[in-house]
Design a protein around this nucleic acid. Structure first.
Length: 148
DNA sequence: TAGGCCATCTGGTCCT
DNA sequence: AGGACCAGATGGCCTA
């Protein structure tokens, strides 16, 4: 750890991104990044895509429309079965899981040692932006000041 | 108790 | 047709 970075982190903690961005440093749940109810795999329920085995599902029920109940809209609508809906839910859970993995990776990249609690996603993004700006400035300064 | 954060579900849209 | 992506809704948990 070298001094500019250490200063960045300490300065950052002194000013507190929450203040800087007009937020409150809240924090959630526990250490597990996956979910609050994380004792199970995020996509362990409903449908096992690998085996293709449907856990719940009965006869061909259909989801068709209607955001908020109105069913007779002129827009074309995709009719999907319960099985398809469940499979889509599983895919969405996986997608969100990978998104959270990316957030965790980003959390590890930004200097936050003075933070006791895990950064929220929005704080992580904001801190990353500030950190990148800081490093860019630092790079420019050093390139200007260093002799050829 | 209100507000913040998050996971999950869901339907719409775009793309292959 | 089906998957990926997105945004809105909802409900749970946590903290001030």
């Amino acid at each position: 750890m070298d001094s500019p970075l250490v200063h960045f982190v300490t300065d950052f903690n002194l000013m507190d991104i929450s203040q800087k961005y007009n937020m409150t440093p809240k924090q959630q749940m526990d250490d597990d990044p996956t979910s609050p109810n994380s004792n199970t795999s995020p996509w362990s329920q409903d449908l096992d895509l690998e085996s293709g085995e449907h856990v719940v599902v009965g006869a061909p029920k259909f989801y068709s429309c209607g955001a908020h109940g109105y069913q007779n809209k002129s827009k074309r609508r995709r009719i999907i079965t319960v099985v398809q809906r469940q499979a889509a839910n599983v895919r969405e859970r996986k997608r969100m899981f990978s998104l959270n993995e990316a957030f965790d990776e980003l959390r590890r990249k930004v200097p936050t040692f003075a933070y006791e609690k895990r950064l929220s996603r929005i704080d992580t993004l904001r801190l990353a932006i500030v950190y990148i700006s800081f490093m860019t400035d630092l790079l420019e300064q050093t390139s200007h000041s260093s002799p050829m």
